[in-house]
């Protein structure tokens, strides 16, 4: 059987795809900032915190890492309203992505923190830096530098995972593809174009973060 592909009906809907891509990037950016902050806080807790907090952080990390993102998202969006917490698709998406990235970031950043040479911390302490100063100035920047490639990969995994947010009617890229195919029935063409956009985004975000890391995050 001859397969007839027609990309034109999809291509003329390009503003939808562009808008979807913008939402995907926006979601990823917010989740990256918040998730990394959670990651740093939990990594510190797991390395230095009192044991109940350390255990709590451990449970959080393992719970999130061993359940699918889509279930976490559905739990937040469909489950939490039953407990009185109503969320819009946008806040639910951001919350789920942040929690998800936070757990992975915790493990990644912790690996960087525990590989800090003991002598550096002792040297900093001998200069009368407080514990917080030692962490933010001595331990964290080189730790982030060591784990940056892993962290960037995880951010991209979360971005690709955000395709699921279309299922709770968050209007990101996969939702745009779904909308387009519901208008013109060109399902395969719409999804292939959206997939290509994801591929481009993944490459661009990786480049961007590799560029931004040494300049804005941990210094050269």
């Amino acid at each position: 059987m001859r397969v007839a592909l027609d990309f034109w009906p999809v291509l003329i809907q390009w503003p939808l795809l562009l808008e979807g891509a913008a939402w995907t990037l926006g979601l990823t950016a917010v989740a990256t900032l918040l998730g990394s902050a959670i990651g740093i806080a939990c990594a510190w807790t797991r390395a230095n915190g009192p044991w109940p907090l350390r255990a709590a952080a451990g449970v959080y990390v393992e719970l999130i890492r061993n359940t699918p993102f889509i279930v976490q998202l559905f739990f937040v969006f469909f489950g939490l309203p039953a407990a009185g917490i109503k969320l819009t698709p946008l806040t639910a998406s951001i919350l789920a992505m942040t929690i998800n990235l936070g757990a992975y970031a915790t493990e990644i950043i912790r690996a960087g923190i525990i590989s800090t040479p003991r002598g550096q911390i002792e040297a900093a302490e001998s200069l009368a830096l407080s514990r917080l100063q030692v962490f933010t100035h001595i331990v964290l920047p080189p730790a982030l530098k060591r784990v940056w490639p892993a962290l960037v990969s995880q951010i991209i995994i979360v971005m690709l995972g955000s395709a699921v947010c279309g299922q709770i009617s968050m209007e990101e890229l996969s939702h745009a593809a779904n909308l387009i195919q519901s208008r013109n029935f060109r399902a395969f063409e719409a999804y292939i174009l959206a997939t290509l956009v994801y591929l481009v985004l993944a490459v661009l975000v990786r480049r961007l973060l590799y560029w931004a890391g040494p300049r804005f995050v941990f210094g050269r």
Binding site: N66, V71, F78
Partner: peptide, 30 residues
Amino acid sequence: TKAGGMIANVTYEPLLVYGCVALIYFTICF
């Protein structure tokens, strides 16, 4: 996951159902 969605729809207890779904995934994966 799909079964969880279907059951949540008939029982009107999404919090419990999705909690159980997550727990089952956890017991498989952990």
